[in-house]
């Protein structure tokens, strides 16, 4: 066992990268669920974002345009879900699952000519002075801009839901859509905007995998990240801060257990491998002892009475 081979600075830096795709997708789904909609199509939207972002980045040579394209791709796919659930009043669970299957198939089709193609590299933000701080510099200030975007988005979502009128309306729609409708709020419109936002975030999360974390296009490359993001929202009790904590915890323990394996630490590999799931769930379950509960109208179909 050689723990000295683990570089804690690199470890902490890489956990931020590992956490970002899940964080982005989970934040989007958090907003969707706070609006009372359960979209199980996160995986499908992520993989669609992964290929849209990859293709656009390759064709334009710009990762920034790639991420923008990924957000649009994810949002467009989520629009399909919005149409099915908000207008056709289809079952949300079935529609979400269908969206995942459709996204996986569509991305495979779109991505055929991009296998083996290398995307343009995303530059790391070189923050003057801050990046030179010993230890903290490389951990906190040497990342690509999407890592910081993910953190900023967490605070933006938290502030939106807690302090703004728009956030209050969104939460009202999610808690009791009939009451919100009676007060004159456009339930369907609010939910469509939330669904589009969720799709865009999932798309960004997918593109982060294909443009930065791996970086390449491989069919099915999200490999279940969307499902982890979905679970994270529930275990985080629909709170943005806890989603950030959960994503970083999951990413951190994932990277840590790989490091411990490579260092030959004397803990059975099976325990190390299950630790990201176990630790994240345990911590978030303990935190959710404050009786946080799901939005009251989550997953329920809204029938406008007028």
């Amino acid at each position: 066992m050689d723990l000295s081979s683990i570089n804690p600075i690199l470890l902490l830096a890489s956990l931020m990268v590992a956490a970002t795709p899940i964080l982005l997708a989970a934040l989007g789904e958090l907003v969707v669920e706070r609006a009372g909609v359960l979209n199980l199509g996160v995986e499908g939207m992520m993989i669609t974002g992964a290929i849209c972002g990859f293709a656009i980045a390759v064709e334009t040579g710009s990762p920034v345009l790639g991420f923008a394209g990924a957000a649009v791709g994810g949002a467009l796919l989520s629009l399909l879900f919005a149409g099915l659930t908000q207008f056709a009043l289809a079952n949300q669970v079935a529609s979400g699952l269908a969206l995942t299957l459709f996204g996986l198939g569509l991305s495979a089709l779109l991505g055929q000519s991009y296998v083996g193609v290398k995307p343009p590299s995303t530059a790391k933000l070189d923050i003057p002075l801050l990046g030179d701080i010993p230890v903290l510099g490389p951990i906190l200030f040497g990342h690509d801009w999407m890592v910081y975007f993910g953190i900023a988005l967490t605070f933006a979502v938290w502030a939106l839901l807690k302090y703004t009128r728009a956030g209050l309306i969104l939460r009202a729609v999610g808690e009791n859509h009939d009451a919100a409708h009676a007060l004159g709020y456009k339930v369907v419109r609010v939910r469509i905007v939330a669904i589009l936002f969720g799709g865009a975030c999932a798309g960004l999360g997918g593109a982060y995998i294909s443009l930065i974390r791996v970086p390449q296009w491989t069919e099915g490359m999200t490999a279940g990240a969307g499902w982890i993001a979905l679970a994270l929202v529930v275990f985080a009790s629909w709170k943005a801060g806890r989603v950030l904590l959960g994503a970083y915890l999951f990413g951190g323990v994932t990277v840590l257990q790989l490091n411990l394996q490579a260092a030959g630490v004397d803990i059975p590999v099976e325990y190390l491998s299950m630790s990201p799931y176990l630790i994240t769930i345990l911590v978030l379950v303990i935190l959710s002892a404050d009786r946080s509960r799901a939005p009251g109208s989550l997953g329920r179909i809204f029938h406008a009475s007028s």
């Binding site: 974390r213 490999a223 790989l258 394996q261």
Partner: peptide, 26 residues
Amino acid sequence: FKIVWVFEWFNPAKEADAAKVLIEQG
């Protein structure tokens, strides 16, 4: 030999993470 088990046949992100960890460890 440094061996890392990912317990999956196919998971590009996890495979990339495993490779990065091994590279970081020399």
